[in-house]
Write a protein that binds this DNA or RNA. Structure first.
Length: 305
DNA sequence: AAGACGAAAGTGGTTGA
DNA sequence: TCAACAACTTTCGTCTT
């Protein structure tokens, strides 16, 4: 079996691996072929002057590892038996008992939370960076006591949602709800609460950020994709976008672009992918074509059929 | 029969008194 | 705390292809 990979869409072998996002993308048709979760990069520092290569032993420390990938436990009684007085042994054991009591509850919570986090990240095919950001947010939320009175799952979901927004790879609340089995409203509520309490500044998401993913799911050509971004830019310039749901605008732009480039998708199809209703697409669509003077072009295409 | 269109009523969140 | 409000959804009837 050859190891050379081809794009399943256009057969091109001109593939590109984005190390930042971990995605493998076809250069010819922009299809995201694989979204790898693994980061093959090495850890940054070497403490060994002799060894020029930047490497280290052991796994890397990670926020999404419930104990940061480190063990904090003190050695067992048996380990220190030979080198310590009885008094010392007793002291250490007492410390250990306390250590366990204090940490187990928090760690158990954190451990479960990180398991859940990894599940959601994997389900939504998100990157390591997003996972780490979400993990950090969750830790902050826990240390501020924000989880009390809320389910761990809903807090984790909203952390992932926030992390996606921060990394400008937004997912919709519906997608998060599907991945976590938590109600959409609940995630939204928790999200607002957590970001307010942690004072996380998140810009309103840009419709353009949704285009690539929606277009890929709708199997639209890169040309159409570019066209819809163009439409979006013009719409933003005319302030058609402020106060409106970004997914609805993105959906409408894609719908218009698909018409103009003769790759028509139904309102239903676009609505389904974008997680909005056909009515919303129609409203945005109308605004776009009237304000951007695209009516004539649309009519021309209509007449051809 | 399917898609597009739009009116009307309902929902949940924001805002401002 | 409450009412007004804007955006969006749901539902449904009508028209077009």
């Amino acid at each position: 079996m050859p190891f050379i990979r081809k794009c399943p869409e256009c057969g091109s072998i001109n593939l590109y691996w984005n190390k930042e996002t971990g995605e493998i993308i076809c250069k010819d048709c922009n299809l995201v072929i694989e979204e790898s979760m693994l980061n093959y990069g090495k850890d940054f520092r070497s403490f060994d002057e002799e060894n020029k290569e930047r490497s280290r032993a052991g796994g890397s420390s990670s926020l999404s590892q419930y104990d940061y990938g480190l063990k904090t436990e003190i050695g067992s009684k048996k380990d220190i038996y030979d080198i310590s007085s009885k008094k010392m042994r007793d002291t250490i054991q007492r410390i250990n008992v306390w250590h366990k009591r204090v940490t187990t509850a928090i760690e158990r919570n954190l451990k479960n939370a990180m398991i859940e986090l990894r599940r959601i990240v994997s389900f939504l095919k998100l990157t390591n960076q997003v996972q780490e950001t979400a993990a950090k947010l969750y830790r902050d939320a826990v240390s501020k006591g924000l989880v009390r009175g809320r389910s761990m799952e809903s807090v984790i979901s909203s952390c992932v949602y926030a992390a996606c927004r921060q990394h400008e790879v937004p997912r919709t609340l519906e997608e998060l709800a599907e991945a976590s089995a938590i109600d959409k409203k609940e995630i939204g509520r928790t999200y607002r609460f957590v970001t307010r309490e942690l004072k996380v500044k998140i810009l309103p998401s840009n419709p353009v950020d949704y285009i690539a993913r929606f277009a890929s799911e709708l199997r639209l050509s890169p040309k159409t994709q570019t066209k819809s971004v163009e439409i979006l830019m013009n719409a933003q310039h005319l302030e058609l976008t402020s106060g409106r749901g970004p997914t609805g605008i993105a959906a409408a732009a894609l719908y218009v672009a698909s018409l103009l480039n003769g790759e028509k998708r139904t309102q239903r199809e676009v609505a389904e992918i974008a997680g909005v209703t056909e009515v919303t697409i129609r409203n945005r669509y109308k605004e776009i074509i009237t304000k951007l003077d695209l009516e004539k072009e649309i009519d021309k295409i209509r007449d051809k059929d």
